[in-house]
Write a protein that binds this DNA or RNA. Structure first.
Lengths: 342, 342
DNA sequence: ACTATGTGCCGAAACGTTTTGTCAAAAGGT
DNA sequence: ACCTTTTGACAAAACGTTTCGGCACATAGT
């Protein structure tokens, strides 16, 4: 890189002051000790010389690089996860920090090396991100660094984390169906044992109970979290004589399968069956016909929350650990209407 | 961050040698000047002290941070673009570099500030990435820095760039239809004036000509690059009496529309009409039924190519600029078969 | 007039490395 | 035995900042 040939010393010489004065003037240090006039002169000569500070040098002196690490397992596989990265990056940017991105590919050995690398570069803190909501064990190497987990929880109460409020999301989704008058509502869910599965089921049950609808476990159909799994789960429910009029699907990808299942069963969406998804995976949700009503995952917000938190953690007076469950919005499109026959 | 309390000086003291010897020993500097025995002793004491070098200090001295910048416009909007980032990151990692990620959001003022920020942090070079293949003007601020464009071309012959080989991709897509015996092949394309539009059309024509199929401009139907646009374009072609037996779609999202168009027109895929997409947008391509045969965009490879190139550019003897057009693979799924009636 | 108290600025010491030049001792050549 | 080279190591000078302590000088207080 064409190095900033002009350093603080050049500015000092040109302005006829000492190096320390330049530093103090440019940084607007609090115990001011420099006249307004000098400060102005320094500022303008710095400007005209095209001076740009060298953050490496400053970092060395201040023992803080101004850089945070973002460590994720499989960043590339999960399309919406980028929003998490973006949320973090923008929050960091507005605090004058940079973010270096690393993908561990889920390999613990690699992860360990990458943490080392980040530490050698003197990052001020690390965002440790999961690509889906789960419980993780914090790598030992991260113990001695300010760290915030994104889309993941951990046992250690002393570490901060942020996850989606799955329960509220599911309540919102089912609530939308209830609000349209649905009483028989199926849940096409994921069979994996992850927090989202358990919590969305809880939200589904809560919304049902709140609406005074009696429990019916046969309305819950679990399968693999794929389009295919969604197809099967939905098909099983829609082929019943007392088929549900509304379907809440664990994910948009599963909802995509539910759409096909409805079509194959000769049912129109939303007239014969209303469908709500989860994730707001844009390409899918708007690409489907009709557009899919779904619950957005607060990826951007989680990234931003975690980044802000991390910055606080690296301040002189770090606050105690905090944990957040962030709500995602319900995105209304055209896949929900009132149930048939009234 | 819990600073590396132990520095090179501590190692020197513990090993009973001078600081410079430690540096030389640990870095395995070429004009060796240090006995094997001493080197080993230094290495082991460094190890046992848990010494980790401070890259900030080294960077300051060597005038090179070991960090590259990745500057993109709207990283979050384009799901598959992450692979580009990943490709770059992994290539950089294997060369011992870190990558800081910045999203400009398409705002030139912000972009300019971000470039400044990167330069202050003494990044060794910058990857300037577009989220779709296009021609860009290089920001002035980037003129004085080693830079490689990713998924973008520019006028200046002196700057390196890498883009997908759209022409070859389209030829592969259409060739797949030809190979299955199709002779009437429609092209549902994008109406936007971007390189991909022009080049994929060229590839379509080339494949057609190569198969000895006479030109028929009415088989090309352009529309907005959305599911809706794909629906319209495909519908227009499929409603003709002499409807094509195969459809090449500009993108997977448009192909998603074509799928619906075929269904609405009472045609089965692939028995009545074969469809090929472009992009290999996973959620869509595997979520569709049947699975969509499509051409992959070489995002990962472009990121990796650009990163390797950038590293070379920052070497003592930088090579001249180079430009690459990378091919994407054809991904075969189930949406293509032989044409009906023979 | 003489001490206290600010003010405005500066010199020099960090921060943790790499790198250059030097030097003593050992080895090798005649 | 003497000169030359090689070897192994080191001291010190960078790299570009921030920051601490202090020094003049002015202002104010008695």
């Amino acid at each position: 890189m064409a190095r900033s040939r002009v350093g603080i010393a050049d500015v000092a010489a040109a302005a006829g002051v000492s190096i320390s004065t330049v530093s103090v003037a440019l940084n607007g240090v609090e115990g001011a000790r420099v006249s307004a006039e000098t400060r102005e002169r320094v500022r303008s000569t710095a400007e005209s010389l095209g001076y740009t500070p060298n953050r490496l040098a400053r970092g060395l002196r201040q023992r803080s690089s101004g850089i945070m690490g973002f460590l994720g397992e499989n960043v590339a596989t999960t399309p919406y996860a980028v929003r998490m990265i973006l949320g973090a990056q923008e929050a960091l940017r507005s605090a004058g920090r940079l973010m270096v991105l690393m993908d561990t590919g889920g390999d613990p050995a690699l992860e360990s090396r990458e943490i080392m690398s980040l530490r050698q570069h003197q990052v001020d803190g690390i965002l440790y991100a999961s690509m889906f909501h789960r419980r993780v064990r914090l790598p030992d190497r991260l113990r001695e660094v300010p760290v915030v987990l994104v889309d993941a929880e951990t046992e250690d109460e002393a570490v901060s984390w942020v996850v989606p409020d799955e329960d509220a999301g599911a309540r919102a989704a089912v609530g939308e169906l209830v609000a349209h008058g649905h009483r028989r509502i199926g849940f096409v869910t994921n069979e994996d044992d992850i927090p989202a599965t358990r919590l969305r089921l809880r939200g589904y049950e809560a919304a049902r109970a709140a609406a005074g609808i009696p429990a019916d476990p046969t309305l819950v159909s679990a399968g693999p979290p794929s389009t295919e799994g969604g197809y099967r789960g939905a098909r099983a429910l829609l082929d019943r004589v007392d088929r549900p009029t509304g379907l809440f699907c664990f994910s948009d990808v599963m909802a995509m399968g539910a759409f096909r299942a409805a079509t194959d069963a000769g049912l129109r969406i939303p007239d014969d069956v209303s469908i709500v998804g989860y994730d707001n995976l844009r390409e899918v949700a708007v690409g489907l016909f009709p557009g899919l009503t779904t619950v957005e995952l607060p990826h951007y917000e989680m990234g931003a929350w975690a980044a802000r938190r991390l910055i606080e953690l690296t301040s002189p007076m770090p606050p105690p650990a905090a944990h957040a469950r962030l709500r995602g919005r319900l995105i209304r499109r055209e896949s929900v209407t009132t149930p048939p026959h009234g």
